[in-house]
Each structure stands twice: as C-alpha cells, then as structure tokens.
C-alpha cells in the first residue's frame, strides 16, 4: 500500500486515509454477514457483495495497480471458477454420505444446537462458498471495466488493456 506513489494515482489524501482506515471494518462486516448467514437475516450473497465493495472502494481510492497487486485478475478468475466447482462438489457429497443430491447430511447425522455458528450442517459452508463466488465475480466485472481503455492509434480506435502496457507512459514519451 505504501509502495504506490500517491501523487499520481487515486484520489486525494483525505479519501485515501478514510478508505485505509475503514476498509478493515467493511471487510469484517462482510465476514460477519457470511459466517452468521444462517442465524441473522443475511446470506452469502450479501457477504460477497460487501467483499467486492471493499475492493471497489480500494480501486476508486488508490488506483487499479494497488488492487491488482493484492488480488490479481487471474486470482479472481480462479477463485470464481473453483468456488463454482466447490459448490457442486459439496452438493455432490450428499450422494455419498446422505440420501440425495444437495442433502444436508451433517445436520441429519449430528443434530446441532441451534443459534450457534457451527450449526445447521452444510448451510454455513454453502454461504462461504457463495460469498467467495459472488465477491470474485463482481470484482472481475469491475476490474475489467476499470482496466480497459479506448485509445486512438493511427486514427483507429482500439480497446486495449492497460494491465499489460502503460498508456500514460506512452503519451508522455
């Protein structure tokens, strides 16, 4: 975070300091929504959206290079794909240990005490997987729109990705 030269990228110092101090709290709120999804009125969807919003805030405040350093685009792709597969895998475990596909077998084998974090069987696991999926997917869409630029080269308007070469350096030189 300190490596980015704050003179060129991102917003002003006030916005950057506010974002820096508030990002942990927002992330904690996302974790709370996800992990307590089977007790409070929330679920993995809202937790994932809050996770993505943290990274959107960081992108707006510090510029895209810092966020791509924390959570790269390839990492987001892999997280999205693997969490989608993981959902299918956890759902398929019901065939092995329970009676049917998407069967909540943990709750049937070990009936849980209610209103605890470790209760309700597979539902917290589904919440965590879905929060990873939604967060990574929303972040992917946002970072794609943040990274692409339309530049003019020899009269042709090209859509390029500023991840691979720096447009500002080209314009300066």
């Amino acid at each position: 975070m300190e490596k980015t030269n704050s003179n060129q990228q991102g917003m002003s110092l006030i916005v950057q300091n506010t974002a820096r101090s508030i990002k942990g709290l927002i992330f904690l709120f996302g974790i709370y929504l996800t992990v307590y999804g089977h007790i409070i009125p929330a679920s993995g969807f809202s937790g994932g959206i809050v996770f993505a919003c943290v990274f959107m805030l960081l992108t707006l405040a510090f510029g895209k290079d810092m966020v791509l350093g924390i959570l790269g685009k390839t990492t987001a792709y892999l997280l999205n794909c693997f969490s989608a597969l993981l959902f299918l895998l956890v759902a398929s475990l019901g065939i092995l240990f329970g009676s049917a596909f998407l069967d909540n077998f943990i709750e049937k084998i070990f009936p849980s005490s209610n209103y605890r974090i470790f209760s309700a069987g597979l539902i917290p696991i589904y919440n965590i997987v879905i929060s990873l999926f939604i967060g990574a997917g929303l972040f992917m869409v946002f970072i794609i729109f943040a990274v692409r630029r339309v530049i003019e080269i020899d009269g042709r308007r090209l859509l390029i990705s500023t991840e691979f070469f720096d447009v500002t350096q080209r314009e300066k030189s």
């Binding site: 999804g37 089977h38 007790i39 409070i40 009125p41 929330a42 679920s43 999205n80 989608a84 959902f87 299918l88 759902a91 596909f101 998407l102 909540n104 709750e107 009936p111 849980s112 209610n114 209103y115 209760s119 309700a120 069987g121 597979l122 539902i123 589904y126 919440n127 879905i130 999926f133 939604i134 997917g137 992917m140 869409v141």
Partner: peptide, 30 residues
C-alpha cells in the same frame, strides 16, 4: 435444518437446486 434463518433453510436446503441454477446462471453471465 437447524437454521434459524428460514430463508437460508429454504434456499440452501429445500430448494437447493434452484440456488445451484442461480449460481450457474451468474457464472455464465459473468
């Protein structure tokens, strides 16, 4: 289901295939 959030128990247990399809619709859309 042991989940005090009835919405969670519906979407992840009783109608799990529905949420599975939602996940893959989102995946295909993204």
């Amino acid at each position: 289901t042991g989940s005090s959030n009835i919405i969670s128990s519906i979407i992840f247990d009783y109608r799990g295939i529905d949420i599975l399809a939602h996940i893959y619709v989102l995946f295909a859309g993204i």
